[in-house]
Amino acid sequence: MSQALRVRAAGTGPAHARRPWPESWVAAAFIAPAALVVLFVVVVPLARAAWMSLFDISLVRPGDEPFVGLGNYIEQLTSGDFWAATWRALWFTVVSTGLELGLGLALALLMDQPLRFRWLLRTLVILPWALPTIVNALMWRWIDNAEYGALNALLTQLGILHSYQVWLSNSDLAMWMVILADVWKMTPLVAILLLAALQSVSPELVEAAKVDGATTLQALRHVLLPLIVPVILIVLVLRTMEAFKVFDIVWIMTGGGPANATQTIAIYAYQTAYQGYDFGRGAALGYLIALVIMVLAAVYLRLLGRLGRT
């Protein structure tokens, strides 16, 4: 027994000395260091950002930071640029998530079949996802290059295109090319998650349906899919929230251009905060993005909850 405890024991009596700390105290003591770290790297910056969002703070105008209340929020919510960027992000989210889910499901069903080289297929499918996003974006920028990109070479050699297309510098095509790159990278993740769900379904269920006269499509529609709906929803939640705040792949491929055609809400926030040096407006935008994602998450969680009850 240490000197400190002996002193304490002397002061409080032997019965108290033996009594251990309540379990909750021990837990608190163990959690305290991590909680402190979280406090300083998460809670404090969050609070500071919230505070900053109420001021007109410009990095290039030091010392002049008037309080504007909710002015930054109102300004954004009434700004055409903000809504244009929000719609672009939503468009990116809906199209890329939809394609990833459709293709991912098809791939998962294929990989679930007893094919001869299934292990090879599964390895190959996961490769795009294993690439860092930055590398993927750079790779697609080269593929889409108008002068010496592989896409133009392939499409002209197949006779589909007669002359080279300017993929990334055309404001009508640029967003589609970014979506293509994102789908190429993220479909494998969706496929692997859905494959895991499919494998947890007992094969007897499908076989029983077939014995009862169901076609393969009917068995898929009425037996397999309902059983993996929870996983599909989780994939949707994850991908939607990720896609809505997409930044890196867009930034590397197009920088938000041409003519802002790929300026999603996260790019808009970055440009406001770090290129316009408007940290007050930037902080307000950060909170608005978080709000949209929270609304999306709440909708999905409600759906999941309803599903759990049924």
Binding site: M52, K245, Y270, F279, A283, I289, A290
Partner: peptide, 8 residues
């Protein structure tokens, strides 16, 4: 937290 941190 992640979003706001990323932005700010």
């Amino acid at each position: 937290v992640a979003t706001v941190l990323g932005a700010c």
